[in-house]
Design a binder for these strands. Structure first.
Lengths: 164, 164
DNA sequence: TGACAATTGTTGTCGTCAACAACAATCTTT
DNA sequence: AAAGATTGTTGTTGACGACAACAATTGTCA
């Protein structure tokens, strides 16, 4: 099989006219359905939008939340360690920390053990703020449950546990 | 509860020294585990990287593939219809189509029904190329199966079917 | 019919984000 | 002590989403 496969699955329409509006909601995705990447991508966009909206009042985005969480759970980490753990580039983490430090949520302490690196800590304000963020994040997580179902969410977490 | 929650779950380390290398692989994610968004995000990154690598020789990225697939399955669609169906902004689609048209995979036909819009079609080369892309995409999909398991992939598609 | 609103494709700007490359300061290794 | 590796930083590039403006065209409705 070569081009014929794509050809045969193509639904016939008016030769060269644009599809009229009334069948616009009936667009087949063909091979796209069945691709894990496409579904995951759309779902991830939905999740991030809900997260950003739910944590909108406190102005915390998913990546910022992950950084704060890791630092809160592991005080004293170097930037390199945080970046490696979260799969962020260290160049990118610089800007993230600049922002978080400016907001007095995180502080960079010059490490005495290795004077190249910074030990990352939450400020007292950062601790209380993170607690609030976690409550909002839990609320967001409930939105996910409402969207795909409690059982499905649990299965999803189980399936993707290896990627955390 | 306020700051104490985050405080108590923090593992104790040297007060202000950066974490030594030999415990770098033992960084707790704390609340991050249990967040669907984080797992989905990491998984999506993995999937896209594998897709890009698997279709590297033909230089086709996931978004381009989705556009070609939809046009192939629904010849004659307008740009607006494609953009809406895939959740792409029409401004973004312009550049995508510019690239694909330059590579002779897609052609914009001036619609006679609505002279504002373009009817999108695959060129003959586009048809044969898409067939090849689909074979490579299927190979990528097998990589996903190897990564998370055939059964888990099927469940994931079922869970996320509503987002396609 | 004719004026006004809506749509389509296009161009442009802005901000986010990943991937690289280069650099100075500082370890580590030999 | 010298050579090489690591850490944080700065900068550039390119993909991508969100928005705003615009000309051409279509739809509406008074």
């Amino acid at each position: 099989m070569t081009a014929t496969a794509a050809q045969t699955s193509a639904r016939k329409r008016a030769g060269n006219g644009a599809a009229p509006r009334d069948m616009a909601d009936d667009i087949g995705l063909d091979a796209l359905v069945g691709h894990a990447g496409y579904a995951v991508r759309r779902f991830q966009i939905w999740i991030f939008q809900d997260f950003i909206r739910t944590l909108g009042n406190v102005d915390i985005r998913p990546t910022q939340y992950s950084v704060l969480t890791v630092i809160g759970a592991n005080p004293g980490l170097s930037q390199m360690a945080v970046a490696k753990r979260l799969g962020i580039e260290r160049a990118r983490l610089v800007h993230l920390l600049d922002s978080l430090e400016q907001r007095k949520l995180v502080k960079r302490v010059k490490s005495k053990a290795d004077r190249r690196s910074h030990a990352l800590h939450l400020t007292p304000q950062g601790e209380t703020a993170l607690a609030k963020f976690k409550r909002l994040a839990a609320e967001h997580e409930r939105h996910v449950e409402e969207k795909i179902g409690k059982e499905n969410r649990a299965q999803l977490l189980r399936i993707l546990a290896g990627f955390t």
